[in-house]
Design a protein around this nucleic acid. Structure first.
Length: 298
RNA sequence: GGUCGAGUAGCUCAGUCGGCAGAGCAUACGCCUGAAAAGCGUAGGGUCACCGGAUCGACGCCGGUCUCGACCA
């Protein structure tokens, strides 16, 4: 499997590998490519690429749907089983670290308690997240120690699971800091920050030229619109701001570039803790430089 | 040429009466179990345009120089 930050060229590498190995199928591990008609902004594989090689993990939901980790894992596990049954080889392309961990590592997923969650979110707003965190310290000190007291979103989720499920949040699975041996060969693409920044700027400008503004406008015009999760895709929320008159197109583009760069760094930071990843430092051409490593790894 | 305004962190700007140099953003580092392209935490960073002066003490006051902007000629 191939992983790395946005704009690192991982999709191209996977595509080249799959073309060289008939029968190989690509599985995208990406939180945003799951939405249909969000094509340009998510750099989804083109129609001809999907024609040439079977792709999974893509176009799983409507832009109006809330789609999250658990739905993704369910869908991809089915795909992986089918690929396996076909005797084919799966090439994973991963940009979303958490989603990848949920595939590579066993993760028994706690359920959902929506009304409890709504109440907790309300309290986080009124009393502040630290008050809830103090409660979590009592109920589940392990989970409380794993997150910042100010992180309302994570604290609320941990309390939701602990109170709703009747057992501590931290009792589900070994935790993200455990890296057991798994039957996946993981190759990471690594660029220098400056080189990646240049590629990101180029890519974002390319998206604008390819009609990103029109794509966003069309999505907004749909009856169901874009869900809370879909609209937080990079490039989408900023163009929405622009379409609503909050900022000029140039300002929106600059913001997209900065945020994409920050996202790429966050991806790096997530992946680089994982000792199971073998890194390839790229100078110029991802396909030429990574493909041999990928070949030798399988 | 004249008048006025501006010059402080990478960027945009605060800085009260002369008494240890500030914020937001950016950057770096870290965290994360059903929003993850989301969310959260920590840190570094300064010739206060330059030269001189008065003062125990100047980003601040005085004199001069430079740069940018507006207006007047």
């Amino acid at each position: 499997m191939v992983l790395g930050p946005t704009a690192s060229g991982k999709s191209d590498v996977a595509m080249a590998f799959a073309r060289a190995h008939p029968g190989a199928e690509i599985v995208a591990v990406d939180a945003m490519q799951v939405y249909r008609r969000m094509d340009i902004g998510t750099a989804k594989p083109s129609a001809s690429e999907r024609d040439a090689v079977a792709h999974h993990g893509v176009d799983l939901a409507e832009p109006g749907d809330e789609f999250a980790l658990a739905e993704f894992v369910r869908a991809v596990e089915v795909s992986l089983a089918e690929i396996d049954a076909r005797g084919a080889r799966a090439v994973l392309v991963a940009g979303t670290g958490l989603y990848l961990r949920a595939i590579t590592d066993p993760m028994d997923m706690p359920g959902r308690w929506p009304e409890l969650r709504a109440a907790l979110e309300e309290r986080a707003l009124v009393e502040g997240p630290t008050a809830l965190h103090r409660e979590l310290v009592v109920l589940d000190p392990v989970a409380a120690g794993r997150m910042e007291p100010g992180n309302a979103r994570r604290v609320v989720r941990a309390l939701e699971v602990t109170l709703g499920g009747g057992r501590p949040f931290s009792s589900y699975g070994p935790g993200l800091d455990q890296y057991p041996t798994v039957p996946f060969r993981q190759i990471g693409l690594r660029w220098t920050r400056t080189a990646l920044a240049a590629r990101i700027a180029l890519r974002v400008h390319g998206m604008i030229e390819a009609g990103l503004v029109g794509e966003v406008a069309a999505l907004r015009a749909e009856a169901t619109g874009m869900s809370r999760t879909a609209r937080q895709g990079l490039g989408y929320k900023e163009i929405i701001d622009h379409l609503e008159g909050e900022c000029s197109l140039d300002e929106a583009v600059d913001t997209i570039i900065v945020r994409t760069r920050q996202f790429a760094v966050r991806q790096e930071r997530w992946f680089r803790r994982d000792p199971r990843i073998r890194w390839v430092d790229i100078e110029h051409d991802p396909v030429a430089e990574v493909l041999p490593v990928l070949e030798s790894a399988v």
